Computed example of a mutant assay.
Amino acid sequence: MTVFDLPARLDATNAPAIEQQLLRLIQTDKPALLVCNFAATDYISSAGLRILLLAAKTLRQQGAELQLRQMQPAVADVFRLAGLHGVLNIQN
């Protein structure tokens, strides 16, 4: 299991850098399970959602899994409103 700690805000400002870090981690470490830790994250935009969907797709292609953990209620609401609770593995 590999844990990736997300920043307080995940939006268009920092999404490209986070995407690069996540994809590099996936390609280099090839984790069977990648856990994105949302403990410090209090805001996510559609740009943030997009990179998590990309990471999940990339991991699935490698036979691996993405889990999202320790989501704050406001962030979890964004995932629910976007209809992603059934698409992504969210563990709280």
Rank of each mutant, 00 (worst) to 15 (best):
Gln21Ser: 13
Leu53Gln: 00
Val87Tyr: 03
Asp5His: 08
Gln62Glu: 07
Ile51Lys: 00
Lys57Ile: 01
Leu23Phe: 15
Tyr43Glu: 09
Pro7Arg: 08
Ser46Asn: 13
Thr13His: 14
Ala17Leu: 15
Leu23Ala: 15
Leu59Gln: 00
Ile90Lys: 09
Gln72Pro: 09
Asp5Pro: 06
Asp11Trp: 05
Ala47Pro: 09
Thr58Cys: 06
Leu49Cys: 02
Gln20Gly: 15
Ile44Glu: 11
Leu49Lys: 01
Gln21Lys: 13
Leu6Tyr: 09
Ala76Thr: 10
Glu65Leu: 06
Gln21His: 12
Thr41Asp: 08
Ile26Lys: 11
Ile44Asp: 13
Phe38Arg: 04
Val75Leu: 10
Ala39Ser: 14
Thr28Ile: 12
Ala17Arg: 13
Gln27Arg: 12
Ala64Arg: 02
Asp11Ile: 05
Val35His: 05
Ala17Tyr: 12
Leu23Asp: 12
Ala8Tyr: 09
Pro7Ser: 02
Arg24Ser: 15
Gly63Lys: 04
Ala64Gln: 04
Ala8Pro: 14
Leu6Met: 01
Cys36Lys: 04
Thr13Cys: 15
Thr13Gln: 14
Thr2Met: 07
Thr13Arg: 15
Gly63Ser: 01
Asp5Met: 07
Thr58His: 12
Thr28Ala: 12
Arg60Thr: 11
Arg24Gln: 14
Leu68Ser: 00
Ala76Asp: 12
Ala12Lys: 06
